[in-house]
Amino acid sequence: ESFERTINIAKGNSSLGMTVSANKDGLGMIVRSIIHGGAISRDGRIAIGDCILSINEESTISVTNAQARAMLRRHSLIGPDIKITYVP
């Protein structure tokens, strides 16, 4: 059984350190890789294959690959914290 989780990740000045791609069925974006030493890796809660539904409350539903990457990059630049809703 999968259910949504919303977490805050304190990334400070470091990068999030993950790559994503659009989910084929349009439901959010899938975590493709996690870079060791990045904020996601240090936090430890998000794993490869998890589905991200929103970043800082901006929905990732029906985004393209390019939009998913641009959204991740944009939110990575805002502030020291990032809020991610995902399904493990």
Rank of each mutant, 00 (worst) to 15 (best):
S62R: 13
Q67V: 07
N13C: 12
G28H: 03
E58A: 05
A70V: 08
D50Y: 01
H36T: 15
E1G: 06
L27V: 15
A10I: 12
L72G: 02
I40T: 05
L53R: 10
L16P: 02
A70R: 13
M71S: 06
I52C: 03
G49E: 01
I34H: 02
Y86K: 00
D25E: 13
A22I: 09
K83L: 07
D25V: 08
I34K: 04
R74K: 13
R73D: 15
A39F: 02
L72Q: 04
T19V: 14
R74W: 06
G12Q: 10
T85M: 06
R74M: 06
V20H: 04
A70Q: 15
H75S: 12
S33I: 03
A10L: 10
G79T: 11
P80E: 14
S54G: 12
D25Y: 11
I48K: 11
Q67S: 10
G44M: 02
A22S: 11
S21K: 09
G26N: 07
P80T: 14
L53S: 06
Y86M: 05
H36N: 14
V63P: 05
D81G: 08
G38P: 01
M29H: 04
G79V: 06
I84G: 03
I48W: 00
N56M: 03
G28N: 02
G37W: 02
K24R: 12
H75C: 13
M18G: 00
R73W: 09
I84D: 03
R32V: 10
R74Y: 10
S41E: 15
I61W: 08
T64A: 05
E4G: 10
K83V: 07
D81T: 12
I55D: 05
I82A: 09
F3A: 09
G38S: 07
V31F: 03
M18D: 04
T60G: 05
I55L: 12
I7D: 00
I82G: 02
N8I: 15
S62P: 11
G49T: 02
L72V: 13
G79C: 08
R73A: 15
S54P: 00
I30Q: 09
E1V: 09
V63G: 05
P80R: 13
I82C: 15
N8V: 14
I7H: 02
G79L: 05
I30G: 03
N65Y: 06
H36F: 09
E58S: 05
A47F: 06
S2G: 11
N8E: 13
I9T: 04
P88E: 07
R45N: 07
H75A: 15
A70M: 12
I52F: 01
V20W: 08
A22T: 11
V87S: 08
I40M: 05
S33P: 02
G12F: 07
E58C: 08
H36Y: 10
I34L: 07
R5T: 08
G44T: 04
Y86I: 02
H36P: 15
R69M: 13
H36K: 14
E57I: 02
S33K: 13
R69I: 09
S41W: 14
I9C: 03
L16Y: 03
I9M: 03
I9Y: 00
I7R: 01
S21L: 08
D43V: 03
D43W: 03
G12P: 09
I35F: 10
R69K: 14
I52T: 02
S33H: 11
S21F: 07
S15Q: 14
G17I: 00
R32W: 00
G17Q: 00
I78K: 14
S59C: 07
D81P: 06
G17E: 01
I78C: 15
M71W: 06
T6I: 07
R73C: 10
N23I: 02
S41A: 14
D50Q: 03
L16N: 03
L27H: 15
A22R: 14
G44Q: 05
S15V: 11
V63R: 08
A68C: 08
Y86C: 02
K83T: 11
L53A: 03
I7M: 02
V20L: 15
T85N: 05
M18R: 02
L53W: 05
T85I: 05
V87L: 12
G26F: 00
K24C: 08
V31Y: 02
P88K: 12
N13P: 09
S15C: 13
F3Y: 10
H75M: 15
I48L: 10
F3Q: 10
T19R: 11
N23Q: 12
S14K: 13
L53K: 13
T85C: 12
G37V: 02
K83S: 09
G28V: 00
S14R: 14
G44K: 07
D25L: 08
P88Q: 08
I30K: 07
I9S: 01
E58F: 05
D81K: 11
S54D: 06
D25R: 13
D50L: 00
T64F: 01
G17C: 00
I61V: 14
L16T: 03
S2M: 13
G26W: 04
S15K: 14
A39V: 09
I40V: 13
S2L: 10
N23V: 04
S2R: 10
G49P: 02
K83F: 05
R73V: 11
I40Q: 01
A10G: 07
R5W: 03
D25I: 07
T6S: 08
M71R: 03
I55Y: 01
G44S: 06
I52V: 06
V63N: 05
K24P: 15
I46Q: 02
L72Y: 04
H36C: 10
E1A: 06
